[in-house]
Design a protein around this nucleic acid. Sequence first.
DNA 1: TATCTAGTTTATAATAATTCTAAACTAGAA
DNA 2: TTCTAGTTTAGAATTATTATAAACTAGATA
Lengths: 140, 140
Amino acid sequence: MTKFMNQKNEIINKLRGSGLRPTKQRILIAKNLFDNNKTFHFTVETLNRKINKSGNEKISLATIYNTVEAFTNAGYLKEILTSKNKSYYDTNIKSHHHFYDEGSKELTDINYNQIKLSKVPIPPKGKKIKNLEVVIRIQK
Amino acid sequence: MTKFMNQKNEIINKLRGSGLRPTKQRILIAKNLFDNNKTFHFTVETLNRKINKSGNEKISLATIYNTVEAFTNAGYLKEILTSKNKSYYDTNIKSHHHFYDEGSKELTDINYNQIKLSKVPIPPKGKKIKNLEVVIRIQK
DNA sequence: TATCTAGTTTATAATAATTCTAAACTAGAA
DNA sequence: TTCTAGTTTAGAATTATTATAAACTAGATA
C-alpha cells in the first residue's frame, strides 16, 4: 500500500523533473516500463499490447508513441541500434552492449564489464563521444 | 575498353558465383555499387536516384529492393545498425566501426585498427561470433 | 472551490518504407 | 529456335510512424 504510493510518487517526481506533466497515461506507461527490477527491450507494438490487455484502462496508440518519444528524449529510455525498420527501445539506459542473433533476430544484453576497449579513436573536431556501444553479431 | 570488359566480366562472374543470373539490371546496379575504389553508405532511395537519373536505362524500384536484398544475402553488402526506421547499407563489408552523429544523423566509417578490444565475451552456447561492430555516438 | 488555459490525449487521416502480386519478359539450357 | 525457370515490373497492399485537429484535463490562479 505505502509501497505503491511511494512508487507512484517517485514516478510523478521523475516526470515533473523533466517538465512532463504527470498524466494518468504517462504514469501507467511508466509503471509498465520502470516498475520492475528487470530491464528489457520493447517496441511500441509490444508495449501497446502489454498495456492494453490486462484490466488496465486503455491508452491510445498515438499516446504510446508520444510518451515513448518523450521518455527517450528525457533519457529514461534508449533507442537500440538494429538493422530492422522498426524502433526498438531498451529500459536499460546504462552503457552496455548487445549480442544480435542473426537467426532469431533477438537482442541480448551484454554486461558493460564483459567488454573492454584498449584503443578508442578521437572524435571528429567539435564533437565529443556521448556513448559507445558494441554489437556482436552471432550465428549458429 | 578492355578495362570495361574486364570489369563487366568480373561482375558477371561474381553474380554467377552466388547463383544470381547476371541480368542487365543486376549488372548495372553492381556497377554503381562496386565500380569505384571507394566504399560508401546508401539507402534504397539514394541508390534508386543515382541509377535512375544519369542517362542509364531505368530500373524499377522493386528490382532495386530485390537486388539489394540479394546482394546482402550474398555477402556483397552489409546492412548498417541504426536507430532509424529505414534500411542503410554499406558497400564496405570488411569489419569496421562507425561514428554516429546524433545531430546530423550521419554515419562515418572508423578504420578497423582505430579500435582495439582487450576483452570480448563468450557467445551463448551453440552460437559463434560472426562479426563485431562498435558504434560511437557523438554530439556537439 | 470554480474558472481558465496550455498541455495532453485521442481517433483518424496521411505519409513513408517496404513487401506482395501476378502478368510480361528473358537468360541460357536443350 | 524453342522452352521454361528465374527475373523484372507497375501497381496494390501492408506496416510503422507521424500529423491533424477536436475533446479533455492538470493544476495555476482568482
